[in-house]
C-alpha cells in the first residue's frame, strides 16, 4: 500500500459517500445516471469475485464489501425507493450502455492476463469501469445545470483513478516485477474521459459560478 493508492481509495470512498448523502439528504437522484450506477455495480461484482477466496487484508475485504454494498444500495434506491425514484431523469438517461457491456466483454475475452473465469471477469471489470462514467457525463450535459453534489460526485470519481495512475507509476518504479498494463491503459483512458469535465469544473470553481457543461 502506498500513499497514492490510499488517497485513491479514500477519494473513491468520498465519491460514494457524497452520492449516498445526496440521495438520502435530498431524497432525490436528479442529475444522477442510473445506468452509470448499474455499470458500477457490475464492475464491483465482476471484479471482486475473489472476495471469499483470496484474503489480502482486512482493509481490502472491508472496502470491497463497502463498494459492492453501496453500489447495489444506490441502484436499489434509484429503481425502487418510492420517493427517490420519482426524481430520476428517465428521459435524459438514455445512453445505450449495452454497447459498453458488449465491447468490454469482447475485449476481455481477447485481452486478459490468464484465460480463467476470474481473470476474464477481472479484465472485463477494468475495461467497463473505464467507460462506465459515459452515461453520467452525457446526462450532465443534457440536464445543463449540475447540482453541487452531483458535480462533486463526478469530480471525486474521476480524481480517484488519477491517484491510481500515480500509484502504478510509483509501484512500477519501486517493485521489480510490477506490471499491470490492463489497469494502467484503462486507467489512463478512464481519467482522460473526465478531462473536459475537470476543465469545466475548474472554470466554474474559479469563477465561483454554477457548473455549466456545454450541451
Amino acid at each position: 500500500m502506498n500513499i497514492f493508492r490510499l488517497a485513491g481509495d479514500m477519494t473513491h470512498l468520498i465519491s460514494v459517500l457524497v452520492l449516498l448523502l445526496k440521495i438520502y439528504a435530498t431524497k432525490s437522484c436528479s442529475g444522477i445516471s442510473l445506468k452509470t450506477q448499474e455499470l458500477y455495480a457490475i464492475v464491483f461484482v465482476t471484479r471482486y469475485l475473489d472476495l471469499f477466496t483470496d484474503f489480502i487484508s482486512l482493509y481490502n475485504t472491508v472496502m470491497k464489501l463497502v463498494f459492492i454494498g453501496s453500489s447495489l444500495a444506490i441502484v436499489w434506491c434509484m429503481r425502487y425507493h418510492r420517493v427517490v425514484r420519482r426524481s430520476y431523469d428517465r428521459e435524459l438517461d438514455t445512453f445505450r450502455y449495452w454497447i459498453l457491456l458488449g465491447v468490454s466483454f469482447i475485449l476481455a475475452l481477447v485481452l486478459h492476463e490468464k484465460f480463467t473465469l476470474q481473470e476474464v471477469f477481472w479484465a472485463f471489470s477494468i475495461y467497463l469501469e473505464a467507460v462506465a462514467i459515459l452515461p453520467q457525463l452525457v446526462l450532465l450535459q443534457r440536464s445543463g445545470n449540475v447540482d453541487n453534489l452531483a458535480g462533486q460526485y463526478v469530480f471525486f470519481l474521476g480524481a480517484y483513478r488519477a491517484f491510481y495512475i500515480l500509484n502504478w507509476i510509483y509501484r512500477y518504479l519501486t517493485e521489480q516485477r510490477f506490471t499491470r498494463w490492463i489497469s494502467c491503459v484503462s486507467g489512463l483512458v478512464q481519467t482522460a474521459l473526465y478531462a473536459d469535465f475537470f476543465y469545466y469544473y475548474f472554470i466554474s470553481w474559479k469563477n465561483n459560478a454554477k457548473l455549466q457543461l456545454p450541451a
Partner: peptide, 10 residues
Amino acid sequence: TQTDSVKDEL
C-alpha cells in the same frame, strides 16, 4: 512464489 496476478488493488 506469489504470482503477481494476485489482485491486491481495489
